[in-house]
Write a protein that binds this DNA or RNA. Structure first.
Lengths: 191, 191
DNA sequence: CAGTCTTGGCTAATGGCATTAGCTTTGTGG
DNA sequence: CCACAAAGCTAATGCCATTAGCCAAGACTG
């Protein structure tokens, strides 16, 4: 029997493919069986490269979080930063729903998922830097990052998991949310 | 062997207890085995009262959604409505994380979960009514409801699933989010 | 070039879960 | 008192993760 030539990196890669074939919940339903099938290998073989399903999930999450961070880091500074960060995040979620789901998934409650938490911290740093450049006052910067993340994440989540009724156009609602939130954050960030 | 005296309602009740013992993700990890253990009954016995795990999940979700709707419906009208709706939702999530999780869970992507969707529609109706009373103009009412839901849900989700670093106080951030979002929604809802 | 040893694959076995089939007992209503 | 529906049960199937232990591929050494 010829070897499949797997490696830890390759297994993670295959898991990402699996994620890309799924929806925003794909992270939760990711399965070693599916990855093994993709690799053309028996399930236990994966344990030669990965400690188990949980560990694989964390590795996958880290890749996804870093990818999102990279996208956010490319947003140019300027008066539109905050809006652009929101739009970029949403665009990422639309382009890669499975990966976006992984960036905000259940690893957060797992204290053992150190690497994922660190990766998430890098995302937050990127956002803080952008808000700093956008003149959000120091003492409300954390509040502003949280508000931005919460608003965008909540929206994307509801949108991609069918939480909105099908009727009204969603893009308009997103613009509305971002615009009005921004009026608060940036222009009136004095109190 | 004496009968356990189960019924559909009782099984749902036990599932709710199970939910109440868990965190915000409890809905996803709800298991027939756990419910059966609580009932003091073998797992297959539950099938006499419930069609299966998915059906039980939907029933449970409906109860939780309706409970949230009821809480929201009790918010008195007035200039503070929108803020109070946000605060009430968050308070519900804090008091019953498991149940809150059920109100925004994976049933949304399941077209077969008609009852849950209908219950969610009732929640939205309640919110629309409140925003109408708060003078949010007709043509942006849906946008406003979506913005409100997204912001609050995103915040609560990040908060309860450890998405926020442990440092800064969270209540302040929530106040900040709601206050600034409101400035947009209510006072400047003209464009 | 031959022998060895690491490594990456395998099968088999265990245990948790949901679900289905089919049996038995309970207890109610005729 | 008997019959039958309902509510339990056990057994079996199938999917999943995980562990243990086997075997072959192939790289490295002498």
């Amino acid at each position: 029997m010829p070897r499949a030539g797997l490696s830890t990196a390759r297994v993670v890669e295959l898991a990402l493919e699996e994620l890309d074939d799924g929806d925003i919940c794909a992270w939760d339903t990711l399965t070693l069986a599916a990855v093994a099938a993709r690799a053309g290998v028996a399930v236990p073989s994966l344990y030669k490269h990965v400690r188990g399903l949980d560990a694989l999930r964390v590795s996958v999450a880290v890749v996804c979080i870093d990818q999102l961070t990279a996208a956010l880091a490319q947003v140019p500074p300027g008066p539109q930063v905050v809006r652009d960060l929101a739009v970029t995040t949403r665009a990422f979620a639309h382009a890669h729903p499975g990966r976006y789901g992984a960036t905000q998934a259940a690893w957060a409650t797992d204290p053992a998922a150190t690497e994922a938490h660190q990766a998430a911290a890098r995302t937050v740093e990127t956002l803080v830097a952008a808000l700093t450049a956008a003149n959000v006052p120091q003492d409300h910067r954390i509040d502003a990052v949280r508000a931005l993340r919460a608003a965008v994440h909540g929206f994307v989540l509801l949108e991609l998991s069918g939480g909105f009724g099908l009727a009204e156009p969603v893009d308009t609602s997103f613009d509305y949310l971002v615009k009005h939130l921004l009026q608060g954050l940036v222009q009136r960030a004095d109190n």
